[in-house]
Structure formats: C-alpha cells, structure tokens
C-alpha cells in the first residue's frame, strides 16, 4: 500500500492546499445565504429593495431585532420562540421518556404479545406524520386540542425510531448486569433508574439533540392546528410574516426573525456537543 501514501495519507504540499480550499469553499457556499440574511437584518427596508443588495452589515441591528422580538409582524417573535421552545422540548423529552420505557418493557419483560407490540411500533416507522396527517388532525380536533400545546406535542411524541434505537442499545447490556442488580435487590424500575438510564446517557443526549431539532423544525403540523397567531411556532411564523396581496414584506424584521430562529438549535447542539458526539461514535462499555 506504499504507493497510496503519496496521495492519500501524506498531508503536504499541493493536495493539502487543495483539500483546504475545497472545504473553505464549501463552508462559504453554505454560509453565504446565512450571511446575507444577517446583513439584511441590520439594514433598513429601503436599503434592501434598492439594488445592489448590501453585503456588509448596516447600523440598524438593535432597532430591527427589537422590532422583531417585541412586536413582530403578526405576533412578537419572543412569543413564537417560546412556543417553539415548548414544542421542541416537549417533543424531545416526551419521545425520549416514552421510548426509553417502551424499549425497557420490550427488552426486559416477557409479556403476552411482546413480539406483536414490537412489530406494531416498528411498522409505524413507515407512517410519518405527513402520511397520517388527516386522521391525526381529526383526532386532535375531536379532543379540542387545536391551538394548544398538547395538540402541538402529543401527536409527534410516539417514536418508533427512538424506541428501536434504545432497544438495540439495551440488547447490548449484558444479562449478567440485570442479574447482578436482581441479586443486589433492585426491583425492575430501580434497575431502570439506577443502571439502565445512566448507562444510556450518551444515547439520550444524542437523541435529544436530534429530536429537539426535529421538533423545532416542524412546519406542516403547527401550520395546520394553530390558527391563533399567539400559538404560532417560529418556523411556520416566518412564513406567516410574508404579506398576502400587494403589501411589501418587512424584510429586515423577517430576516432578524430567521436569524433568531436559528439560535436555540445551535445552542443545543453546541452545549451537548461532547456527549452528542460520544453517543454517535462509541457506546460506552
């Protein structure tokens, strides 16, 4: 394999420059629209509609962000951020709690219909929210949960993916550990809290990040069931800010809202980065 090391392994000279150049280009390519959005959120409406479009930030940062946060277009962005946060946290925590428990039941208890329930859960993998959206809407409306947090959260909580992942992880926990806990006197729920949950913590962190972003980015479902602007979530709220008819859009405020909408997921990813990456890369033995 010696001949390969010239091009593949050795990081020197031209190849190193080229690979860096490509990566930098990629980053620029992804970041440029975000940069433009940021620039647009710091100038006035007039600056935006007059070509050429500005590429450097202007002096109206505080003004635009204050307008977005506290008055917005239809409803203050702070309210929408709060709604999104409640929904994303509710979905992430709810999904993790329910899938931990159901995976625990499926792996550690022999109850009649165990196989059936596992496959029933598994099959729902094939039915994402969008597919079952009409009947789900019927049910939620029937329970009078339109324009409520429960309505936003509950239908998205049941999670085959997370249950499946936890099941796979629990299967790697040696049986001897459960037996040792049994001899030590731990009843099943004690074993769950003292042994299973702490051992799953890197998996939980990784899933939390993924599910938080999943919840945060929900668009179709909140759009359907929230008609009251004060229940809007931020991702759908941005769309609602576009005026209908001939009104002009308030671009600086819309762009400030977009930037604000990105902050919580970024904070979650960065603050859980260490655990998150550990969870994805290796499972602790």
């Amino acid at each position: 394999m010696a001949y390969q090391s010239d091009g593949m392994v050795e990081k020197s000279g031209a190849s190193r420059w080229i690979s860096h150049a490509i990566m930098i280009l990629g980053v620029l390519f992804i970041f440029f629209p975000i940069w433009l959005a940021f620039v647009a959120s710091t100038v006035t409406q007039a600056d935006i509609v007059r070509p050429p479009m500005p590429v450097l930030p202007g002096p109206h940062f505080w003004e635009n962000y204050k307008a977005a946060l506290f008055s917005g277009v239809n409803v203050p962005v702070s309210v929408m951020l709060g709604n999104s946060l409640i929904m994303a946290l509710g979905i992430a925590i709810g999904k993790i709690a329910i899938s931990l428990l159901s995976a625990f039941a499926i792996v550690y208890f022999k109850f009649p219909g165990r196989k059936f329930f596992f496959w029933a859960i598994f099959i729902t993998l094939m039915l994402p929210v969008e597919v079952r959206i009409v009947p789900t809407f019927e049910v939620v409306a029937g329970f009078g949960m339109l324009n409520t947090y429960q309505g936003l959260i509950l239908p998205l909580i049941a999670s085959a993916t997370a249950t499946f992942l936890f099941r796979q992880f629990f299967l790697t926990i040696p049986d001897e550990l459960a037996e040792a806990a049994r001899v030590d006197g731990a009843r099943p729920m004690r074993f769950f809290w003292d042994i299973v949950v702490p051992m799953s913590r890197t998996n939980i962190a990784a899933l939390f990040v993924i599910l938080f972003i999943y919840g945060w980015n929900q668009y179709l479902w909140p759009l359907l069931i929230t008609t009251d602007p004060s229940m809007n979530t931020i991702v759908m709220g941005i769309k609602q800010m576009f005026p209908s008819g001939d009104d002009t859009a308030n671009w600086p405020v819309i762009m400030a809202t977009s930037i604000l909408a990105m902050i919580p997921p970024v904070v979650v990813v960065i603050s859980m980065q260490k655990l998150f990456i550990r969870g994805l890369v290796d499972s602790e033995k």
Partner: peptide, 13 residues
C-alpha cells in the same frame, strides 16, 4: 445470597 459472575457484572457507570 451474594453472587460473583464470570464477567464480574460490575455497573460500568
């Protein structure tokens, strides 16, 4: 009773 297992079965965390 107390039991010592072949793979020790220590709680890893």
């Amino acid at each position: 009773i107390a039991m010592v297992f072949q793979n020790y079965a220590l709680y890893p965390h």
